[in-house]
Write a protein that binds this DNA or RNA. Structure first.
Lengths: 135, 135
DNA sequence: CCATTATTTGTAACGATTACAAATATATAA
DNA sequence: TTATATATTTGTAATCGTTACAAATAATGG
């Protein structure tokens, strides 16, 4: 596993303590934490951490494509350090988000002439196994 | 084109003036208007219309699958009365949203055992023809 | 026509995000 | 090192789409 500070440097971002801490945390979790979850998780070890810094850092990381910004329509954003092409399944029963570690299908052919495709976001909505069983 | 009030009745929704007006407007436009755009468009003909009613109505229509709620990460929601399976292309240059009138690819095979798929939302991000040319 | 229920309305509250300026830390130059 | 400039962080206040709520109005059923 590559050092987090090194990744930042490679992308032209000065690896401050706060930035390194936020990215390291994001890389260590498999969930898709919200800003507040990140902030609450890091506060004990960084008592002076500001929520604004978490916002700033995530925006910076997102601009440099080190982090994916996910919007599941919950009213707040979630963040994912796994930028490999994959999809998300949102269970409408329990609200959990499941990673589908498979690249979204090729969609280039769907576009009109002259359109350039940069990213594909595939969101699957349904009922997870546990909730299906419970019904 | 089926009468709007009739559609409401068929779905067990009492066709009040406000509800009919909102749905009729949504069915008449090819854009994906925001709550405020809908409100501003209908206000001249319905001076007593309340923004809250627009919110309430859209929530009701959405629950009955008469309207799609779209979230392009702009900070507000957009609504679409065309519920046929299609995709959206968001241009990161001009911000416009283009309808891709093609069903999203079949994704059932991507799900783990026991998961039930209800909806697929495919969001394509890139540069539209006009913006590509301008670059 | 009265009583009940459904719908609409307007205001106030909410909450995630953003703006901003002061405080702090880091880098650069002399 | 010391001074100076620049970058980053911090905390507070503002923004803005949305939601909660209760009063007002409209529709329904006896």
């Amino acid at each position: 596993m590559q050092a987090t500070a090194e990744i930042l440097t490679q992308h032209g971002i000065r690896p401050s303590v706060q930035r390194t801490t936020v990215l390291r945390y994001l890389r260590s979790v498999k969930t898709h934490p919200t800003v507040d979850e990140i902030y609450q998780a890091l506060l004990p070890g960084n008592p002076s951490l500001s929520r604004t810094t978490v916002y700033n850092t995530l925006e910076l990381l997102s601009e440099h494509n080190l982090v994916l910004t996910l919007d599941f329509g919950e009213g707040y954003l979630r963040y994912d350090a796994d930028c490999s092409p994959h999809c998300h399944f949102i269970c409408d029963g329990c609200g959990r988000v499941f990673d589908i570690m498979e690249a979204p299908p090729d969609c280039a052919g769907m576009l009109p002439r002259g359109f350039a495709l940069k990213a594909v976001q595939l969101k699957l909505v349904g009922t997870c196994a546990a909730c299906s069983k419970a019904e």
